[in-house]
Amino acid sequence: MELICPAGTPAAFKEAVDAGADAVYCGFRDETNARNFPGLNFSREELGQSIVYAKARNVQTFVALNTFMRAGCESLWHKAADDAVRLGASALILADFGLMAYVAETYPQQRLHVSVQASASNREAIRFLVDAFGARRVVLPRILTVQDIARLTRQIDCEVEVFAFGGLCVMAEGRCSLSSYATGKSPNMNGVCSPASHVKYRQEGAEMTSELGDYTINRYGPGEAAGYPTLCKGRFSVGEESGYAFEDPVSLDVMDHLDALRDAGVSALKIEGRQRGKAYVAEVVATLKKSLTADASGRAALISRLRLMSEGQRTTSGAFEKRWR
């Protein structure tokens, strides 16, 4: 299985390549990608240089253009696709059907991957994307069990990529409106979930309070591990109870299921984290690369170290091993 690694900056890109990535995914410095954070992402020149660096080491570069085009501003996304193709991207990761149509018609030879943001999670949807736009790979939403994935891969004619490690969404990628509700901005349209411009932290004694827009979303006790300031990972009062109503602040780790995913026909494992620093990228990529060739017992020891770097300092296999149904 290929290891698909994140890069938010050229320095992180280089770390990912040097640590053993098979492919690195990244985006331009604008709203065409779902990690449109301040100080992050690539200029055209930086992407070109990074692709050259990767190609010289036999590593692929995937360019994420995985937000949905704003009506009347389609040229921003078209231009981004034009530039990514011109610079030599190995594949474009797309979510918007209109943009997929543009790329398929303008650059029929360009490899097209379906972003997780497209929420393509069933046979019919994926077959449609393969037939209509020539999609070569689909990144599955994090809502399927390993058994679901195995059934699906047998019924479709394209490669399957799954998230293996890193931040965990609320399992409605491309359709989640929680960030829009609280801030007016979303990962789907603006490329930002819970934008930093709307985040505030307050230290009150040994407690830390996080706020998003007008909402207090969490209070962490002294020494309690923290999570991202997103509504989905906020604490809510529901009836008589208070706690995490959507999901806990915890990261995804499905490395215990590597063999099952391989047997299920998965082609590539994706590491989430374009917003993370280069130190994280280097450590996670190198560890997961080693894990791919380690036996099951050695794998657990390798991965345990990564837990401390995870959101809430905890990990879960999430829906891949669904226990709540």
């Binding site: 411009s197 932290y201 620093g277």
Partner: peptide, 16 residues
């Protein structure tokens, strides 16, 4: 982010 999760760091003011 890891240092924030572990509470080794605290950030206030303009987070952006």
């Amino acid at each position: 982010d890891a240092l924030f999760f572990s509470r080794d760091l605290m950030v206030t003011g303009d987070i952006e």
